[in-house]
Amino acid sequence: MAEILIFVALLALGYGFGRHAETRHYKSIIQREAALRDIPVVTTKFPPLDHPVNAELVTGSVVISVDYFKRFLAALRNLAGGRVTSYESLLDRARREAVLRMKQQTLNLGGHIIFNVKLETASIHKGRGSIGSVEVLAYGTALIHPH
């Protein structure tokens, strides 16, 4: 009986905190994306170099942890198959946050555009019972107009 209560409490905690964090994070992401929209992120490797620019490597890295509720949902998905929607939003947040951090760095350097942008994902997880976190790294080449 005690185990059931602990389990339900963990689920409720995971759901409560996870949901709260996610809603707040998305709000902030949408806001900052609007603010940094004038720094385009481009995947092409070859920028048009019609006038002299400085280039600099910019990176943005995020580590986000899964909550107990999301993990339970994903475990059930493991049996039934289909979209693991609980992880989809987690990774979506991580990707967008990583790009935003990269853009922020570019802004701090005085850059105006980022070329050759790549995203990498790594799961920070070592076997059963360890933390379930994901790292997303965004990196690219920021072009900065010389002063």
Binding site: R19, I30, P40, L76, T85, S86, E88, S89, D92, I113
Partner: peptide, 28 residues
């Protein structure tokens, strides 16, 4: 170059997580 605003809900699901929770637990 431009990055226009992309509508929400393409890469994520818009359905409520609790709905999925109940469907999955009762189903499985």
């Amino acid at each position: 170059y431009q990055n226009p605003k992309i509508p929400e809900g393409i890469n994520t699901s818009t359905s409520h997580p609790l709905k999925e929770f109940f469907l999955l637990t009762t189903g499985v």
